[in-house]
Structure formats: C-alpha cells, structure tokens
Write a protein that binds this DNA or RNA. Sequence first.
RNA 1: GCGCUCGUAGCUCAAUUGGAUAGAGUACUCGGCUACGAACCGAGCGGUUGCAGGUUCGACUCCUGCCGAGCGCGCCA
Length: 576
Amino acid sequence: MKEQLQTLLKQSLEALVSENILSEVPKSIRLDHSKDKTHGDFASNIALVLSKQAKCSPQKLAQQIIDHLPNSGEIVKTEIAGPGFINFFMSQDSNTAVLDQILEQAVDYGCSDIGKGQSVLLEFVSANPTGPLHVGHGRGAAYGATVANLLRAVGFKVDSEYYVNDAGRQMDILATSVYLRYVETDKFPDNGYKGDYIFDIAKQIDNAKKLDIFTDVCADAPEGQSQKDGGDKEKHIDGLIANCKRLLGDDYKVIFDLAIDQILAGIKTDLAEFGVEYQQWFSEQSLVDSGLSKTTVEALQASGHIYEKDGALWFKTTDFGDEKDRVVVRDNGIHTYFASDIAYHLEKFERGYDKMINIWGADHHGYIARVKASVEALGHNSDKLEILLVQFANLYRGGKKVQMSTRSGSFVTLEELRNEVGNDAARFFYVLRKSEQHMDFDLDLAKSKTNENPVFYIQYAHARICSVLKQADEKFSSVSIEPILSLLDNEAELALVKELNRYKDTLQTSALNYEPHVLAYYLRDLAGSFHSYYNSCEFLVDDVQLRSSRLLLIKSVKQLLSNGLNLLGVSAPDSM
RNA sequence: GCGCUCGUAGCUCAAUUGGAUAGAGUACUCGGCUACGAACCGAGCGGUUGCAGGUUCGACUCCUGCCGAGCGCGCCA
C-alpha cells in the first residue's frame, strides 16, 4: 500500500517538473505512517523539503502536489496540515488488505530483498576463552544474534563468526593458573585466574607431576606483598609461566589444551543454549600457525608502513588518521595482539564479503582507528568494515553496582542469568535497549519479579489469541465463511489494522540500522493494541461474518507477534 | 590533559533517524472479572529533553562552548 502511494506521489512530482514548477524529482520521497490517527494513515513532508526549490510556500506546493496526484481509489482524502505536511487518508479496503497478505505469506510476511543477497560477515562476542561468559557478554550475544536474524530477514546473506583469542600471554596465565590449582599451592598469585571454574578444570588433570614452580621467580610480589607495584606482579607471574613451561615439558601443552578446550566447549554450549548460532569459529592461533600473521607484517613492511624504534617494529597508523603509531612486533620478537588482528581483518577481506560488521564492547572504541588504518594500509576499503559498539551493562544487586572481573572470579555468568530468568526474558531484556545506550541491569528485578518483564506481556497476547482460536474451533463448526473486512470498523480494530500495516517498515528500519529494540518496542505496542481490543470487544459472537472477520484480524496479529518474537530469538508460546 | 560514547518524567527507557501536542513501563491515586485467560484493560499524576548559545519553515536529534557520567589513551589481550 505504501509503495503504491509512493508511486502516485512520484508521478505527481514528475508532472510538476514537466510544468517547470520543480526542477527535479528527489531521489527518495519520504512517507511516514502517521503516529496520530487524526493525521490519517500516511504523512509526507515532501512539500516542506521542496519548497525552497519550488520558490513558493510549502502549503502552496503541497496543494499543487495534491492537485497533480493521479486518481486512485485507495486515497479517500488528503489534507494539508501544519507547516505543509500532506496527510493521506486511505480507504478501508486498502488498509485491511494487509490481513490477507499476512495470512498468505505467514512466516515470510515482512521479509524483503532490500539486502539483494549481499554477503555479510558478522563477528560478535569473541570473548577471550579465559573463563565462562558473564552477563556483560550476554548483551553482545543477544544483540549480535538478533542483528543476524534481522539482516537475513531483509535479504542479506549473513555468516556469524566468533574470533577465538587462543594465542598469547593470557592463555599462558590461564594454563598456569590451572596448574597452580592442581598442585594446591597456598601462594596463588593475585593476578592469576581465581574463578571456581579453574578448580574444576584442575580436577581433570591426571598424572601430571606436582612441582614447585616458585623457585627463582621474581619474589617481590607474591600474594599480599607490594601489590601496589603492578610491574613486579606481572614479572612474578611471567616467571611462574616460564617455570611451568620448562619444568613440565610436554605436560604443559596438555594442560594448556585442556584448559582452553574446556572453556571453549563451555562457551559454545552456553551460546547454543542461548539460541546464538555461529557459522564459524576463527582461531587466532591458526593465523600464527599458517604464517599469515608474519606475512602480513612483512607486507606492511614492504609497503613502507613499518619503521623500527627502540628495538620494536612500529606501524605508522597515524598516516591513516590514528592518534599515535602502534607496535606490531615487540623488542623480544613476539608479535602483539594487534599484529594478529591486522592479519585477521586482512583474511576477512580476502574471503570476499560485501560487508563486514564487528560488534565490540564499548571499551574497544579506541581500537577502531588502528584497525581501519591497517585495512587501508593493506589496500582495502575500510568503509566495508562497520564497527558497532555495544555499551556495557552495569549490574546492580541490592541497589549496589556489581563489579565484574574474570580474573578475580567475581562475576555473574550468562548461564546463571539464563537459569534464573529464562532465555526468553534474557534475550528480550538485552535487546530492549538501544545498543549505544548505557544500560542498568537490575539483577534483583530481573530475577525476582520476572512478570514485570515486557516479554511476558507480548507472549501473553500470543497465548490469549491461541486460546480464543482454540475455543472458536470447539464451539463453532468450521464451515468457511468469507469474512467481510469492512465490518472491522470500531476504534480498537482500526488501531490494530494500522499497527499491522506498520510491521514491514518497522522490520526494515530495525534491520538496516542494526536496531533490534525498534522491533521489540513495536511488538510491545502491537500486543498492547491487541490487549485493548480484547477488553473492548468480544470475538466469539453469534454473527458469523463479524466473528470470522474478527478472528481473521487476531490471527494476523498472532502471526506477526510470532514472526517478530522469532526474529528476537524469543518463543511464542500457545499457552503459558 | 586528550579522545570516544552518553545525559529525556521519582526510577528504567522510547521517540518513525531533522517533523506536527516528547511517549511507554514502573512507582503512586482511582475504576473495571458471574467475561473469549485480570500475566489484562481504562482514567489520573508526573517534563525548562544537563546548562548556554547557534544553524532553519521546524531541534531530544545537527554545530560550538561549558557541566556531569562511563570507557579508552601499554612493547597487555
């Protein structure tokens, strides 16, 4: 319906161009579903936008646009309002046509091909495999999975990917922490991984020697001493790692692999149970093994973007707008994390996607400039790489902010949250906030008063409709009666029909702007309109035509609630 | 100090991406089940959109400067 109207508007503008009233037809003609029903069904600001070009007042231009509109049975009334908006009042038939479309296209209703099959690589979560996912990661997981669903619905071909940081010092700290729990030392370093899950992994070690790895390590800062001096603490744990590797020999690798396998398996299960699926798990170590990490640095060197200073290799990212240059190879010859990340992004570009999207925690924002710089330096268009930042969720418990740290082991895991509030509530809650909005997550509220979560409000609407339809089947014979949609004429019905007409645009807006919350809010509004309708009208009336018309309407509502919830990764139960 | 992100009702958040009278939930005050599910509905209360300027037909939205919050600024990952 909106498309037809847009076409009519365009024809009118073309006519005005041929009469030299306008110089050209704009690329896009803005047409909004009006939010206030007194403004009709659609509103356009086109006259306001073009008044300067037409050199006349917006109101006058609006009148000319209306005068040049081709005749159409769909438009019953137009009016000029406010500073020059054109409001369109559509015919009842034109408005209720959506009901048939929804029921005919069912689960596919709302889907489109605006994405034109473009391929997208969507990377999200990618938390270091040094511990279980916590509720902070949950936001990225829910957001990423939903964005993937939305993009697919509007015609993109999306691959989801998790970048596994399975190389580097953090992994050695992890392995050494596990070993220290295995030997049950009382000198566990302050900066090791202290979570309970480390004990669980340690229990699975069999047959390794229990050695004292504290000999000859920098003894300045064992637990409880000179904690102020971070440098010594780090040297201390590096010494422990070195001893661990040297004394354990081959057993070190066994423990190292055990630790990462266990944790990664846990992360995979966790995400799968949360309804978050990945097409690829990409290992950082594989970049080292394949030599890509090394050849990438060489390529940068060959193209003159690398210089040496203080024994290290620096990448001149300032040439590409970064605020300072970055080290890629340290003076000890070891590649930095950034070096593998450059290789990783190069590898992504070489896989040939039309678009790449990274979803990062907001704490990584300082990293964007250097990654884009490296992409440009290697001859690729960094515009194909979009980086979306998700703000942290502040957790509150008992009115107090909960500090979260994987190392100290003080965090609420995603699994705990899912068990407490359920997947549906968790998925919905995470996605209800705009991603760049800081969000406060009140654990007590989420856990103890789950009925206040709006997800139940929407699910309840769905269940209510199912219940009505079931009873309709039981009470009345199922002879098919042709509904007469013009009977749907009371206020609640018109509001619902209007709401249903908005779905398709809402889905597109939500997808193209990577804003799942737009869909979430829409669904709540739709459920709200339905609940009002439910309380104002009876569906199972004796008048067969009225009854079947009303049932057709609520069937359509049910379909869209189900479609929308499905995209958000939330179930649409028949009863609850 | 510099940079990024943000600041909207008592609280938690929206606002069709620059549009018309800034809306929901929650809290609080009323009212509605002999009803197709009350996990619901209806009414009320609640605002100088952090502050001050600017841009234009029009600003919560864009620009500038302050104030406040979070994050980042390492040869860590």
